[in-house]
Design a binder for these strands. Structure first.
Lengths: 235, 235
DNA sequence: AATATTAGGTGTAAAGGTGACACATAATTT
DNA sequence: AAATTATGTGTCACCTTTACACCTAATATT
């Protein structure tokens, strides 16, 4: 039995334990700019940082990341994915800490009201960030890369949209993600050809004269698309 | 100063530290089958496992993964990439351990001779694995998915090829990765159209009657291709 | 009431890439 | 000298992508 192997235990006891933290890059889209949610955590009043917390003894990493996200936003069922583990020996000057970064995509509208007051949370443009704690700027940078990479291969952008949205709104999101200006005609054709959107009868009022039709995601098809992506790649 | 903030330190002291391990999924290709290098580590004589080790106080995660890979294979400058952190509370029954898994792609020819004897290392087909320690089977599974995903979008397959190789050999690698049989004519057209290969004058002898020309990777262009992928995606 | 304005939405044609398939070629074996 | 076997080039139909033009709906202006 491994469980009680004496050499094994000795080998374990020689090792140094470290603190394990989780940090979340919470990305949102306000209709114009790609934004990241930053907080002033507890006692670190001077510096903006990512929302984070410690791994508890009874949790998996995913559970911990979800818990921490919930503590700040009150949201569950959020798109949340492990990004990368950061383990530079000096990344946290107080004590050696390995941080597992997660990135979350949320619908800003959902959020607004529910934000916990305890953290002085605020949305910042990802292209104009304040100085951040530790290596959190690296984490944000990597998350943008990951978002660009994924959004190019998977219909992941919907995670940042409200329940109903227009094609021009979605185009603005992709413009913001890639910092460019896609052709509206080709963009809408490409998006609609995925068959993942359901056109609603309702039009958006106020923003433009003509008004654009609202769409919503066909959740069943969307789920299927995300899941079948891997088999699909291999022809 | 954060460094000496009293509340801060108190907060840190309440936390539980855990052991941090690294495990490497070392993938190779022998010309026919995609293989993973497994070991019988130290005292765990009964079970095959991934090569792994503990994070040392002075190392980054990448450094630790490289060190551990070197200990087994004697190789440096290997394609090595962080895969995922695994942190189920009970994944290691002896004590709570968070393991950061890395996946490595190596040229089997390189390896052969240099393998350390200390670990009883052996290559196994990824499609026919023995029972593995802890959650190592999950790690291997995830690494195959990642490899399939990446190889579909990036010219990463070359990492598994020897310095010079033929197009039919490369096709066999892709056949093995995707468990399929690509059309040789379309495959070679697609590969050559990347402009990443340099044709050599030399032909492979012995394997077939006609013999296939050897190619090698244009390393400058390859490096550029890997790096420029992100900007490239956004048109 | 008529016209101008503005953003939404549809259409189209050229160019490029992909997939399915046939055949010529080089070198070894018989 | 003929047969064999895997290499490597060629072609054609089809689909996707790109670039660009114009019509439309609804509000704003005169």
């Amino acid at each position: 039995m491994i469980r009680t192997h004496p050499h094994m235990l000795a080998q374990y006891k020689q090792q140094h334990p470290y603190l394990v933290a989780l940090d979340s890059i919470i990305l949102g889209f306000d209709g114009e700019t790609l934004r990241v949610l930053l907080v002033k955590r507890g006692v670190e009043e001077e510096t903006w940082s990512l929302m984070g917390g410690w791994l508890q003894p009874d949790e998996t990493l995913d559970q911990a990341a979800n818990r921490i996200l919930y503590e700040l936003t009150g949201l569950t069922n959020v798109y949340l994915e492990q990004l990368h583990a950061f383990g530079d020996p000096h990344r946290d000057p107080i004590t050696r800490t390995v941080s597992v970064a997660y990135f979350a995509l949320i619908k800003v509208a959902d959020d607004e009201s529910r934000l916990s007051d305890a953290y002085q949370a605020q949305w910042f443009s990802v292209y104009d960030l304040p100085p951040l704690l530790f290596d959190h700027a690296d984490m944000v940078e990597l998350s943008i890369k990951r978002l660009r990479y994924k959004a190019a291969h998977q219909p992941i952008g919907f995670e940042l949209m409200p329940e109903k949205f227009t094609i021009p709104q979605l185009k603005k999101l992709y413009d913001a993600i890639y910092n460019t200006d896609f052709d509206k005609r080709n963009f809408s054709r490409k998006i609609l050809s995925t068959g993942l959107l359901i056109k609603l009868d309702e039009k958006q009022k106020g923003y433009s004269k003509k008004g654009a039709f609202y769409y919503q995601v066909d959740k069943a098809k969307y789920q299927q698309a995300i899941e079948s992506l891997l088999s699909f790649i291999a022809n």
